[in-house]
Amino acid sequence: MNEDELIEQVAGAYRPRDGYHKAWHDLDAEARRRAYEVALASRSLEAALDTEGLSTTARAVLARITNQTSR
């Protein structure tokens, strides 16, 4: 797995229930900043493609909310 592929993984919205993406730990500080910028740009594109204007981050949060039994 090269650095660009690790960055692409970290820039995605998937996160395990216990927190950090495992690929995040394999990136140095500069690569983590690049992953942040890729995610920022990607979420704008995703939200624009979504019929309700939601990014994959927002969809992931909503899925967690609707899976909860109470607040």
Partner: peptide, 19 residues
């Protein structure tokens, strides 16, 4: 961005806002 997984922190934060 260099010291925390922002995506993980953001999702957890949004969940807490809802709660």
């Amino acid at each position: 961005a260099a010291v925390v997984d922002v995506e993980a922190v953001l999702q957890e934060s949004l969940l807490r806002v809802w709660q």
